[in-house]
């Protein structure tokens, strides 16, 4: 059963699809809106001469706010579309919730820390997205919801005050500003490390732009997904004694997840 594209190039390299074209476009859209929101938002949070200069670049504070709100609306619309498309995909059974955190991710995190401390020779076998990637995705979705809801309150304060206590408005301002800071820090440190600076992907994990990852990369970083697609666990996980914490989930994950498509049963 193959729900993802696997392409063999003329030089023998096997490429496995990781992101559908839609997801790749979504990633670029997030980069764009995030950058615009950050550049027009942070100068309002921090002030200072650089902030004024940056705002002038956008045509002054008023125009920068207009751009910020427009980008915010794009972001919110995108979030609605994204969550909607996942719901439709899940309900119609054409999509696996590969980014949804599950209890196994906590066990993976624990095992991975044990690996970092030298208590196991290899990291635990990760599924299509490991717990670090899921954490970041979850952060983006939950943080995005905070940004969207507080942003809407700040954009329509009169209407917000008709529904909620007035104090929600300054609270939304504090939350909007701090959540932005958190998002920026996670992006600048966690995402830049995971997708660029980590020696395992340096200088860049290109899969979210090309959509594909080599079979070898998949085997190394996401052995459970590899096993799901190619029918066998890659080295070095093949020899892992059965019954360990790390092994047991692989049984569950290699078998089709509920709702997983079976195009050719």
């Amino acid at each position: 059963m193959r729900d993802v594209k696997i392409v063999e190039k003329s030089d023998g390299t096997v490429l496995v699809e990781r992101f559908s074209p839609m997801r790749r476009v979504e990633h670029i859209l997030v980069i764009t809106t995030f950058t615009v929101l950050l550049l027009t938002g942070f100068p309002q949070k921090f002030e200072g001469a650089w902030a004024a200069a940056l705002l002038r670049l956008f045509g002054g504070l008023d125009t920068a706010r207009l751009i910020h709100r427009a980008a915010g609306i794009v972001f919110v619309s995108h979030a609605v579309f994204h969550i909607g498309s996942i719901l439709v995909g899940m309900l119609s059974g054409r999509m696996r919730p590969t980014l949804l955190p599950v209890p196994q991710d906590l066990r993976d995190a624990w095992e991975n820390l044990r690996y970092y401390f030298g208590f196991r020779p290899h990291p635990p076998p990760f599924p299509k997205f490991d717990y670090r990637q899921k954490f970041e995705y979850l952060g983006l979705v939950l943080g995005g919801l905070v940004m969207a809801s507080t942003g809407l309150i700040l954009m329509f304060p009169i209407q917000a005050a008709n529904l909620l206590p007035g104090q929600v408005i300054p609270a939304a301002m504090v939350a909007h500003s701090n959540e932005a800071m958190l998002a920026f820090l996670v992006l600048a440190i966690w995402h830049v490390y995971g997708a660029h600076l980590s020696p395992e992907v340096f200088p860049m994990d290109t899969s979210v732009f090309t959509g594909f990852m080599t079979r070898e990369e998949l085997a190394h970083h996401h052995p459970l997904e590899y096993a799901r697609l190619f029918g066998e666990m890659p080295e070095p996980w093949r020899e892992e004694p059965a019954g360990t914490d790390a092994k047991s989930p692989s049984k569950a994950d290699t078998s089709p997840a509920p709702g997983e498509p079976h195009p050719n049963p």
Partner: peptide, 22 residues
Amino acid sequence: TPNFSKAWLSHYPPTLDKAPLV
């Protein structure tokens, strides 16, 4: 509305006492 005006914390820093949510 008067409720909207409470968004302004009347020059009080947001302490637990004056603006618990903030």
